[in-house]
C-alpha cells in the first residue's frame, strides 16, 4: 500500500513541477467559459441560465481532458520511454500504477473543477449545486467511467503522438456532439442520436440535472450507462495493460 501512496504523491508533485503545462491545463477551461460567456450571457435555454448550462458541462469536459491528456498520454509516454518497463522488474503490480495515476488525475481535475465553479460564481452569478451530494456522486461515477476508458484507448497507441491524436479525436467529437458547446436542440436529429452514443453526453445530462433540477435518483438511466462504461472499461484497461510495446 505504501508504494501506491508514494507513487501517487510523486506523480502529483511532478505534474506541478512543470509550471507551464500546469498553467495551460487550468487556464483552458476557464478561458472557454469566458468565451462562451461573452456570446451567450443573459440568454436562458430550457429555463437554465448561461452559467447553469455551461459551467457544469465544462466540468464534465474537464474529466475528458484529464483522462485523455493527463492520464492516457502520459502513461503512453511512460510506456514509450521505458518507465513502465522498469516497473515490470519490480514487485509493483499494474493496478497500483493505475491507481496512483487515477489519484493524480482526480486531484488535477478537482482543482480545475473548483476553479471553474468559482469563476462561474464570480462572473456569472452561478450558485452552488442544488443537490451537491448528487453532483459529487456524478463526478465520482464519471471519473470511474472515463479514466479507465481513456487509459484503454490510449494504450492502443504505439507512441505519444498517436495517443495524442486518439485523444484529440475523442475530445473534439465529444465536445461538439455531446451538448457541451452547442445545445443539442440546434442539431439535426441524426446527430442528436449520435450524441447519445458518446459517454460525455450522459455526464453532461447528469451534471446539469443535479446542479439545478433533481437529485441523481431521478437520472437512473444516465447513471446506469456510466456505471456500465466504468465496469467494461476497467476490465478492458486492466486486461490489456501493457508494460512495453515489445
Amino acid at each position: 500500500m505504501n508504494a501506491v501512496i508514494q507513487l501517487a504523491g510523486l506523480e502529483t508533485k511532478m505534474f506541478f513541477r512543470d509550471r507551464l503545462s500546469t498553467f495551460w491545463t487550468f487556464l483552458f477551461p476557464v478561458t472557454m467559459i469566458w468565451l462562451f460567456g461573452s456570446m451567450f450571457v443573459g440568454e436562458t435555454m430550457n429555463g437554465q441560465t448561461f452559467a447553469e448550462m455551461f459551467v457544469p458541462s465544462w466540468i464534465g469536459v474537464n474529466i475528458v481532458t484529464t483522462s485523455f491528456f493527463t492520464l492516457g498520454t502520459v502513461l503512453t509516454g511512460y510506456r514509450e520511454t521505458g518507465v513502465l518497463r522498469r516497473y515490470q522488474s519490480t514487485p509493483l503490480q499494474p493496478w497500483k500504477i493505475l491507481a496512483a495515476h487515477a489519484f493524480q488525475g482526480t486531484v488535477i481535475f478537482g482543482i480545475s473543477a473548483v476553479l471553474l465553479m468559482v469563476f462561474g460564481m464570480m462572473m456569472y452569478d452561478l450558485r452552488l449545486p442544488e443537490f451537491i451530494g448528487s453532483t459529487l456522486l456524478v463526478l465520482l461515477i464519471s471519473i470511474l467511467a472515463f479514466f479507465p476508458f481513456a487509459l484503454f484507448l490510449t494504450s492502443l497507441a504505439k507512441n505519444t503522438q498517436t495517443a495524442a491524436a486518439i485523444s484529440t479525436l475523442f475530445l473534439n467529437l465529444m465536445l461538439f456532439l455531446s451538448g457541451a458547446t452547442f445545445p443539442l436542440e440546434m442539431m439535426p436529429t441524426v446527430l442528436q442520436y449520435v450524441a447519445k452514443v458518446l459517454p460525455l453526453y450522459y455526464v453532461i445530462q447528469l451534471m446539469r440535472g443535479t446542479w439545478t433540477e433533481a437529485p441523481i435518483t431521478e437520472y437512473g438511466f444516465e447513471a446506469g450507462v456510466l456505471i456500465g462504461i466504468a465496469v467494461v472499461s476497467t476490465i478492458l484497461a486492466s486486461r490489456f495493460f501493457r508494460w512495453s510495446d515489445k
Partner: peptide
C-alpha cells in the same frame, strides 16, 4: 532479482531522492 535495463529511464522530473524512496517502497 535486480535489473538495470539498457534503454529505460525513470520519470524525467523525478529527483534522485524521490526515485530511491519510491523504489524502496516496492520491497
Amino acid at each position: 532479482i535486480g535489473v538495470q535495463f539498457q534503454a529505460t529511464s525513470i520519470q524525467k522530473k523525478m529527483k534522485v531522492k524521490e526515485a530511491l524512496a519510491l523504489f524502496s517502497s516496492f520491497y
